[in-house]
Amino acid sequence: MAKDITIFTTNTCAYCVMVKKWLGAKGHNYQEVNLDQHPERQKEAFEVSGQLAVPVTVITKEDDSKEVVVGYNLAKLASAVS
């Protein structure tokens, strides 16, 4: 089970909307970091994902290990939050 979920998003990113919608439908709470509102956190999103893309979803598990899913990838999201 996920202990914490953080999503890096931007205002115009439609795939970010889908990740939030999917997590909501599955009953998961998440925190959102909007990079348009917090451009200073872009570096963090890049460092955690190695990519210059959103959405970046960081799932922290019960044992504090982290899994990072870049993009709207249902299969990866499902296994990461399970």
Binding site: T10, P39, L52, V54
Partner: peptide, 17 residues
């Protein structure tokens, strides 16, 4: 791909301020 090559401006444009 996704580290400098992109196909969606509304998704990834914000990284290029």
């Amino acid at each position: 791909y996704a580290r400098g090559v992109h196909y969606c401006a509304t998704c990834d444009g914000a990284f290029y301020r």
